[in-house]
């Protein structure tokens, strides 16, 4: 059997377009079996085809779309498979988590708050500390806040000593000291000698997204009699240099939570602002957001998240992400 490269390429192309007939399929199989040189060409053709799969489906112009844009349902299922993996990794990584010991409830994610500032999100509820199924940024924030509230905010808690602080008469749990680092990866803190280094991103290889959400502060709004009407938050962000020369999406968010029952939290209002960092280690970008504090707010949470999407997300663990000079101001006493 004499086979030309053209004929072989045609068969491979037809196979990849699912237009190959059964007889042609048998022929292709026979060629591959008989000629090792065609095996190599076949593998290269396949690799080229598969690499396109990882390219961006669309130019990522739409900030108001969901974080994870699935081309079709199959990838959503694929995401679910890997989600189990990554959620497990996250739970292991996160020393404070108590996976499996609490009631789980799937939360409704609200990605719409990603864009722009200051519009409310739909209420989301959580019971216990463990979240299964959805891992939207809001869910992660609420979940973590719930954990902190249980562990640190009661002023008599043993663990609270190092994390509990007071601001404007409000008891506040902050993990900034836990994330604190001096200059590293060529990045100097903005003013004093300390800055915050965010934890490693969680990577979803199938949807090619990576994200880390840090719940930086939780304020116990019931700890003061003062009637605050709104709150402003400002932070500066930076990322370590990457050869891929791409930006990282940072989101500063505020979440007003209510606790109608002892073991549940409801998000009554949230606001966020997104900024894309540049790839220059020497500059810090400023991001701010504000929120009106609704009546019945028991806790106010300040969170910072960093996200990457596309091929660079797969290497996100090689990069470091920083925040500095977080300033939260309560207004309207």
């Amino acid at each position: 059997m004499k086979t030309t490269t053209h004929h072989f390429d045609k068969l491979v192309s037809k196979a990849l377009d699912s237009t190959i007939t059964e007889a042609e399929g048998d022929h292709l199989r026979a060629i591959l079996k008989e000629y090792p040189s065609f095996q190599k060409r076949y593998c290269r053709a396949i690799l080229i085809e598969s690499l396109f799969h990882w390219e961006e489906v669309e130019e990522s112009s739409s900030l108001d779309t969901k974080i994870i844009a699935f081309p079709y349902w199959a990838q959503a299922l694929s995401f679910a498979a890997v989600l189990i993996c990554l959620l497990s990794a996250w739970l292991l990584h996160d020393s404070g988590s108590q996976a499996g010991t609490h009631d789980a409830e799937v939360l409704t994610a609200n990605f719409s708050e990603r864009k722009n500032t200051n519009f409310p999100s739909k209420p989301a509820t959580i019971k216990g500390n463990f979240l299964l199924g959805e891992t939207s940024s809001s869910n992660k924030v609420i979940n973590k806040a719930s954990e902190y509230i249980n562990e640190f905010l009661p002023t008599n808690a043993i663990n609270s000593k190092s994390f509990l602080q007071f601001q404007d008469g409000l008891a506040m749990m902050s993990i900034e000291s836990k994330l604190s680092t001096s200059s590293m990866s060529g990045i100097m803190p903005l003013s004093d000698g300390e800055m915050m280094k965010l934890s490693a991103m969680e990577i979803n290889p199938v949807s090619r997204n990576a994200e880390i959400v840090e719940t930086l502060r939780v304020y116990d709004m019931t700890s003061s009699d003062q009637n605050f009407k709104s709150v402003d938050a400002v932070i500066h962000i930076n990322q370590s240099f990457t050869e891929m020369s791409d930006a990282t999406e940072f989101v500063l968010s505020l979440h007003a939570l209510s606790s109608p029952q002892e073991d549940s939290l409801i998000q009554v209002e949230s606001s966020s602002r997104t900024i894309f960092s540049d790839n220059d280690q020497s500059t810090w970008e400023r991001v701010d957001t504000s929120i009106s504090i609704p009546r019945g707010t028991d806790y106010l949470v300040v969170a910072l998240s960093a996200r990457k999407s596309g091929p660079s997300a797969l290497n996100a663990h090689h990069q470091e992400f920083f925040g500095d000079e977080l300033d939260v101001a309560f207004l309207g006493i």
């Binding site: 497990s88 292991l92 797969l314």
Partner: peptide
Amino acid sequence: MNSVSIEYSQLLTSI
């Protein structure tokens, strides 16, 4: 749920 280490998930990502 099975536990998967960060290292394992990175390996999985890389391939």
